[in-house]
Write a protein that binds this DNA or RNA. Sequence first.
DNA 1: GTAGTGACTTGCAAGTTGCAAGTCACAAGA
DNA 2: TCTTGTGACTTGCAACTTGCAAGTCACTAC
Lengths: 123, 123
Amino acid sequence: MTEAKRSGRRSGCPIATTLEIVGDRWTLVILRDMLTGKTRFSQFLDSPEKITTNILTDRLALMEREGLVRKIPYQLRPQRFEYSLTDKGEALFPVVQEMCRWANRFMGDTWRPPESFMARRSA
Amino acid sequence: MTEAKRSGRRSGCPIATTLEIVGDRWTLVILRDMLTGKTRFSQFLDSPEKITTNILTDRLALMEREGLVRKIPYQLRPQRFEYSLTDKGEALFPVVQEMCRWANRFMGDTWRPPESFMARRSA
DNA sequence: GTAGTGACTTGCAAGTTGCAAGTCACAAGA
DNA sequence: TCTTGTGACTTGCAACTTGCAAGTCACTAC
């Protein structure tokens, strides 16, 4: 029984480990939205991919649990939250940047990200 | 109706587009195995993450359909195939490289990839 | 004939996703 | 007071996906 297996992971491989957290169709889409300034539940719902509320709720909770985002109250009655990326979350930026690069090169009809997005550097 | 939506995609965003293809827990694990030299069905089954045969079959078919891998017969009776990465598949290397970097930095107990892996450059 | 090998395929239970409606805790307005 | 609106979820359910485990197929070797 390896250390990685003891903590519930499939293996100690860093790729597989990353995919345990963000290896689904939605988590990095939400990360994109945060990277581009969205903070609130309704803003994420507005994205063109049309995520559903139950998936969004589930993923935000996962991202909080894994330390990718912070929940910050922006009003108290009723209590409402904004979500912002931690350093750990922001550090996934190069992953999505490389995904942008790949799709722009190999997949037809993808949007061009702003120059600022591709020029940005991560911590 | 945008061009992207007509082709069945959630949106034209390159990140979302990439995730339509590799946004699951297994596809990039298989890509890792191919990047490190594995070519045959039984070799992928041997990986520490213990993928199941039905998922492996499904993902290999998807990767072939999307042009990430080529199926090459290595024997004719019975017909058996090896799988190798196309340029399109290989070009996902920086994505998994950045995942390695991220997990090694933020997740405890992950393996260190070989220096050669992190030093490698993609086309 | 039997046994072994490699590459799948199949049956099934559990889990996940997407759709759509509903609920909750407020605030604002009549 | 009541009604309406807002934003953030929650819920019910059908369809789909995943993981487990066994089975099947097309060979070869003995």
